[in-house]
Structures are given as structure tokens and as C-alpha cells.
């Protein structure tokens, strides 16, 4: 990773260039407040010297212990500059998981956000077509959440009891 993309360097640049923004660093990732995500995304995509035009990976993680929350992780690279990654994370509460969609910035988020919605139930506001993608329509619940209970989870055990 080059110096420009180190989390602390990116944090400084972002805080200087995007007014009123405060970020925290955790490991290699920057924690972005949900309501500022689009500004940060556009800045990183469009401004020199970042030009992070390529959203490589978007996925959700469910943390149930230590301040339970759902997290969306973004791995950004640049195809133009051939550098990366910059890792962004957005955290939302598990009972009201609303956050902005980044489809308007990176089109590649379209299916990945649908997947995260389908399996984790995060609602990406502003997504053009937020429907289930892997599970079928009418399926109840979000199966990748850590507290998800399969309806037939005990079926085998009961039968053998």
C-alpha cells in the first residue's frame, strides 16, 4: 500500500476536503458516518490523486456483541491509478438499518447491495431496485444475521428425541 492510501493519510485528506467530517480509524478501515457516505464516496472517486473509480467489494457483517450493529464494508481500488485498497465501513443499528446506497457513485454496488439487503436486511436508501436477489420473493427474514433461526433447525433433533 502506498503512503497516500494509508488510513491516517486518507482520514486527514478527507477531513480537510469534506467540511465538517470527522472519521475514526479502525485497523485499516475508515469508519464513515452513514449520512456522509455519499459525499465521501464522490470525493474519493472523483478527486485527484485518489480516483478510486472501482468498488471492488461491498459486503455486510453482522456484529451481535460489543455494541451490536450491522456494518457494510467497501473495498475501493483505482483502475486508472492502479492503486488500492481503501477500506470504508458504515455502521447502522440492527433494529433500524437504514443507510444511503452508493449505486449513484459506483454502479457495481447494485447487485452487491441487493445481496446485502437480502441476506442481512440493510436498507440502502436510494437504491434503484432494492429487491431480494438470492432468496425468493416472499421469503421471511434475513438468513445471514447471526440471530437468524431456521424454521426447521430443531426438526432433526426432535425426530430423534
Amino acid at each position: 500500500m502506498n503512503d497516500l492510501l494509508r488510513p491516517d493519510a486518507t482520514q486527514q485528506a478527507l477531513q480537510q476536503r469534506v467540511p465538517g467530517l470527522t472519521l475514526t480509524i479502525e485497523g485499516d478501515a475508515l469508519i464513515i458516518p452513514a449520512d456522509r457516505l455519499l459525499e465521501v464516496g464522490r470525493f474519493l472517486k472523483e478527486s485527484e490523486p485518489y480516483r478510486l473509480d472501482y468498488l471492488s467489494n461491498l459486503c455486510a457483517v453482522d456484529f451481535v456483541v460489543e455494541g451490536a450493529h450491522l456494518e457494510t464494508v467497501y473495498h475501493l481500488y483505482s483502475m486508472e491509478k492502479k492503486h488500492g485498497p481503501v477500506v470504508l465501513k458504515v455502521r447502522v443499528p440492527r433494529d433500524n438499518p437504514h443507510q444511503p446506497s452508493v449505486v449513484s457513485v459506483w454502479r457495481g454496488a447494485e447487485y452487491q447491495e441487493r445481496e446485502a439487503y437480502d441476506l442481512y436486511g440493510i436498507i440502502y436508501d436510494g437504491h434503484p431496485d432494492l429487491r431480494r436477489i438470492l432468496m425468493w420473493d416472499g421469503f421471511d427474514g434475513h438468513p445471514m444475521r447471526k440471530d437468524y433461526v431456521q424454521e426447521d433447525q430443531d426438526a432433526l433433533e426432535e425426530r430423534h428425541a
Binding site: 473509480d53 472501482y54 471492488s56 483502475m79 459506483w106 454502479r107 457495481g108 447494485e110 452487491q112
Partner: peptide, 8 residues
């Protein structure tokens, strides 16, 4: 441009 933006 579309290819890059769509993570192809």
C-alpha cells in the same frame, strides 16, 4: 466507463 463503474 460503464465497465469500470459497474465493477466489471
Amino acid at each position: 466507463e460503464l465497465a469500470v463503474s459497474a465493477s466489471v
